[in-house]
Design a protein around this nucleic acid. Sequence first.
DNA 1: TCGATTTTTACGAACGTTCGTCAGTTATAT
DNA 2: ATATAACTGACGAACGTTCGTAAAAATCGA
Lengths: 193, 193
Amino acid sequence: MKSNEIKEAALKYFTIHGYEGASLAQIAEEVGMKKQSIYAHFKGKDDLFLQVLRDAKETELSSKRQYFSKFGSKNPEKDLYGYLQLVIDLFQRNEQLKFWLRMSFFPPVHLEKVIEQEVRDIEEKMQAILESKFQDWINAKLIVGDAAITPTFAFLGVVDSILLELVYGNDEKRLQAKLAASWTVFWRGISHQ
Amino acid sequence: MKSNEIKEAALKYFTIHGYEGASLAQIAEEVGMKKQSIYAHFKGKDDLFLQVLRDAKETELSSKRQYFSKFGSKNPEKDLYGYLQLVIDLFQRNEQLKFWLRMSFFPPVHLEKVIEQEVRDIEEKMQAILESKFQDWINAKLIVGDAAITPTFAFLGVVDSILLELVYGNDEKRLQAKLAASWTVFWRGISHQ
DNA sequence: TCGATTTTTACGAACGTTCGTCAGTTATAT
DNA sequence: ATATAACTGACGAACGTTCGTAAAAATCGA
């Protein structure tokens, strides 16, 4: 399918240059066609962008859902740390996550309402799943605290800080050091008495 | 000084639309002049951008340095939490910090080498200051742990996660909740036995 | 202090390029 | 033969930039 090739190239350029900085001419050249030919597959730049966005959202959602479903109820340390490693792994191998991250925080202004809606949607789903897991672990007395919201937000914060390091990311050593530090302190913070 | 007005407008548009999305025509209109007149003050778009970047860097550096200098050696809880609130305050009132953050993570490609250098410079300075403070607190047995690097990186992670929430930021409630959660867990993680 | 001179700032006009998009035509494949 | 896909050509608009020019401001010698 040629449409997918176009979306792949678009994903790449949108990720590197942003919406405004990516041109249809470059995207088309990457696929080996003229920019006008893109219009045989998409209504225009916005349409292409939104389809790429929705694909990225779906990938993000399903891959994380899949991992969350493997969470048990008796080993939060392993599950949570494994999730952080998954995020790193996904980010480094999956172009879609980088795209998703960039557009979450710096969307093209004229599409920001639509994007914000998608971002909020996926975020709420993730938070809900995580929160219920944390509640299970609290009930099982595997971690301390009364409200599940605290470790949930704190963990989401750790994920965010790792993602930021990945975006900035040219220093694998530093990434691993930050991961280790954040994880150590986080785990002490929710597990110790 | 008209140059400063131009830089102010440029800061605004670069922050909202990114380098590629910001046009000299819009920036000029904001100041009440034509785009050609900008060339009486700056060599071109890149020159304007880099001057704005360096101003932002200086503001960021001096404002944080100023706060760090007030850090004592006997109350890390107050100092660190106060710093987080300062970051939030600065971000919400100071356009330059938003600009700095956006360009740190998603710089225009053709200037990414220059920007990366500036970012790395400021980051190393911050890290060095923080690390020495943490070492003092460890020595004074006010926080636990052996190496200062662990709480330093963990704290920088908390700062990053707060910044990310600020960027995304339309939800003050959620911001405060995330701050509270991250701080609670972080402080438990470095202070409790 | 004054007029003369130089420098600074802003402007209209235009440059060459690139942008996204649309219309019409040709080639390919079902 | 009919639909799909890619092409050529062209469109208006916007981009950053350069030119020459005209005020305005600053500098300077008398």
